[in-house]
Computed example of a mutant assay.
Amino acid sequence: MSDDAMRLPDVLDEPTDDQWEQYVSIAERSFGVPLPDAPLLRSNGLVRLAADAEGVIGGAIALPFTQYFGGRPLSSAGLSLVCVNPSARGDGVARMVVDSLVDHLRERGVALVALWTPSPGIYRRWGWEVAGGASAYTVPVTSLRTMPRRHSRVVADPDPGSVFALHAELAGHWDGALHRPGWWWGWKASAAAKERHHYGVANDDRLDGYVAYSTQPLPEWGQSMVVEDLWARDGGAFSALCTFLSKHSSFTPHIRFAPGVLPSPPELSLWLPQYDWHEHPWHPWMLRIIDIESALTTRGWPVGVRANISLRMVDGPMAGTELDLMIEDGKARLGHGSGRQVMLTERGAAAWFSGCWSASRLARAGLITTGDAHTLATMDSLVATRPWLPDRF
């Protein structure tokens, strides 16, 4: 085999416009959809492309953002548009560009990297683990009429500043939800600006909830409605939004809540009179911890729980790292590992940290190892918030 044949592709972090267009073309063929928002992602994300002598053969983008865990924001990023030209697949190109991005993110102080994928097995080999799921839900519009009524003022096109503030207030209640950067709102709004409608519900001039939805004509009669974003301060605001949506029944037989818009299982099911809603599972989101010390000390922890747990990472880049995790008053500090009471795999650490899997279940699956049942129970009590990532990227 010649030296040219054995030569590894180059990794590009500042591609030319021509190289970028080659990558976008590969991505559009790989995912089967046009990518009109690719320039926006390029300008707000970190790009890594792989190229050989004939041109670009693959690439990926990391979108910097903040994710909440335990009510506190952590520096994170979303891995997106990972793709490789079919002729170069199976040669480690994707791993090469992903590793380059992860290394750069770690150097910048990013603690976590999240992604959505229908192929979790690939990313498990690289240290990611499932942190949550997403489903779409289809509900007859008439069923929403039975929601408890609350008098609220419906607001068309609510003030964006009020919408941003409400989202920032509510997102912190969930593990995994984003504190959306400013450009993110523009990205999602521009994706379907002409077809998307925005409404809010308010009481005493305070925005308590908002919904964004799109409509399309049905072949024979009426229109379909897809809810793309919905946030409510409390059950009353959620009910008011559902009541508003139910008023479209003259033209819309069913409402579809897009994947991730509602946490799973949705609280909506508590109010429906019959089991006439349908769940459409989507693929999961995954998480990888790339800076374990920052992740553990930055996230919030339950205020009423005290803990002192010795952790030892057993695989991945952090293999051999030993830490004493000491938690009190909702905060954590770290000391040098004084024992090997809990053995954590890289995947096990991510799954436990996200709240998707309890330490006890991960121990049964072999991703956490300890002989101390009390320690597992303590770890279970430390991470009990239901994870939810309503944003797709």
Rank of each mutant, 00 (worst) to 15 (best):
L12A: 05
V24S: 06
S25M: 12
P39R: 02
S43A: 07
N44M: 01
L63P: 00
G70E: 03
R72L: 02
L79P: 00
D91K: 15
S100V: 03
G109M: 01
V130C: 04
T138F: 02
P148V: 01
S152V: 09
D159V: 07
D159S: 11
S162T: 15
S162C: 08
V163M: 12
L166R: 05
G176S: 05
G176V: 04
W185A: 00
W185Y: 14
K188L: 12
A189G: 09
A192D: 12
E195F: 07
G200T: 00
Q216L: 08
V227R: 01
V227W: 02
D229T: 15
G236S: 13
H248S: 08
H248N: 13
S249M: 11
V261W: 04
L268S: 06
S269H: 13
S269A: 15
L270M: 12
L270Q: 14
D276K: 06
H280E: 14
M286D: 04
I292P: 15
E293L: 03
R299E: 09
V303P: 04
A307I: 11
R312I: 08
G316C: 10
E322G: 14
I327D: 06
G330M: 10
G330W: 03
V342K: 04
L344D: 07
T345K: 13
R347I: 05
R347N: 15
G355L: 04
S358P: 06
A359D: 02
A359T: 04
S360E: 14
R361G: 03
L362P: 08
A365H: 13
L367H: 15
V383C: 10
